[in-house]
Computed example of a mutant assay.
Amino acid sequence: MEILSFSSLPSTQKYLIEKLEEGTLQSPVAVIASEQSSGVGSRDNSWSGGEGNFFASVAVELEMLPKDLSLSSASIYFSFIMKQTLEALGEDIWLKWPNDFYLNDDKIGGTITQKVKNVLVCGIGINLKNTQNGYRALQCDITPKILLENYLLSLEKFPKWKQIFSEYEVEFEQSKKFSVHIENYQKSLSDASLCGDGSLIIGGKRVYSLR
């Protein structure tokens, strides 16, 4: 997969989506920036920061994704593969439903996915070295470029959703200590039940990870 590297971008996600819509870039492609000034996080929050941290977006065609993957579970899928990539590099992190990377009880990053025609664009921001955005950092020696290269090697194998879910299902128990924003309300995950498609049952209602 082609990787485009920049010293600085307002947002890797906005840049990649804009170029895909213009037709000046074609998937599969990845964009990485050393610095990001106006990054996009969940619920339109910003995710910005300086050198040493990870800011990247990846575009893949929907037909490349495993047939058993529901689009509503794409955030979990892309995030969990990054979690596995970091684990293989010796980092002890876990994934809070549906798209936040945690070190113990502290958020260190997150994922956002957007569909552009027949392409899925996944943006990932992780505090690797510097504490920013009010969140902790891993304090690791991994370079963002090497992390992206390793991530793409894992992603391009396109493991089945069933394979990813079987591992994530065990880890989901850690999410139950936390809350999540759903339709502008904060809901506790303490009694949430995880369904096979990555959605949750909370208070008798099904909630999807549409991020």
Rank of each mutant, 00 (worst) to 15 (best):
L155G: 00
G110Q: 04
N127I: 01
F158H: 02
N104A: 12
K162F: 04
E149Y: 06
D92V: 00
K67L: 12
C140W: 01
K177M: 07
G125W: 11
S79E: 03
L120T: 07
Y135Q: 02
E169C: 12
N118C: 09
T143D: 05
Q139P: 07
I112C: 07
K107P: 04
V60A: 05
P159S: 09
S179F: 04
N127M: 00
S175C: 15
I202R: 11
L86G: 00
G109I: 04
S166W: 06
L200C: 05
K176M: 05
Q84C: 03
S193M: 05
W97L: 09
L120A: 05
L95Y: 06
E149S: 13
V121T: 11
L62W: 11
Q84A: 01
D191G: 06
I146Q: 06
L189N: 15
G125K: 06
L69V: 08
S179K: 12
S175M: 09
T111H: 10
T111N: 07
I164M: 11
Y135R: 03
F165D: 12
M82H: 11
T111F: 09
S190R: 07
Q163A: 09
C122V: 10
L86C: 01
C140V: 00
L69G: 02
Q174C: 11
G90Y: 00
G109Q: 12
T85R: 02
E87P: 01
T85C: 03
V180W: 10
E169W: 08
K83M: 02
E61F: 04
Y135D: 01
Q84R: 07
C195A: 08
S154A: 09
H181F: 14
I81F: 06
E173P: 09
I124A: 04
D197S: 15
V180K: 14
R136C: 14
S188M: 08
F165Y: 10
I81M: 04
L148Y: 01
I202V: 15
I93L: 15
L120Q: 04
L71W: 05
W94A: 13
K117S: 04
P98H: 08
S190G: 13
I112E: 02
I142N: 00
T85L: 00
I182N: 06
K177Y: 10
V119A: 05
L89W: 06
G198S: 14
E171A: 11
D197R: 12
P144F: 00
S190A: 12
N127R: 00
S73Q: 03
L153S: 03
Q163P: 05
P144Y: 00
I76W: 07
G196T: 14
Q132A: 08
G109E: 03
T131C: 12
K129N: 03
L103S: 15
N118I: 02
P144N: 01
T131S: 12
I182T: 08
L120C: 10
K67W: 04
A74S: 15
Y151C: 02
F165P: 08
L152A: 00
L153H: 09
V121W: 07
A192C: 09
F78A: 02
K162P: 06
D191H: 13
I201D: 13
I202T: 13
F80V: 07
F101K: 01
V170C: 08
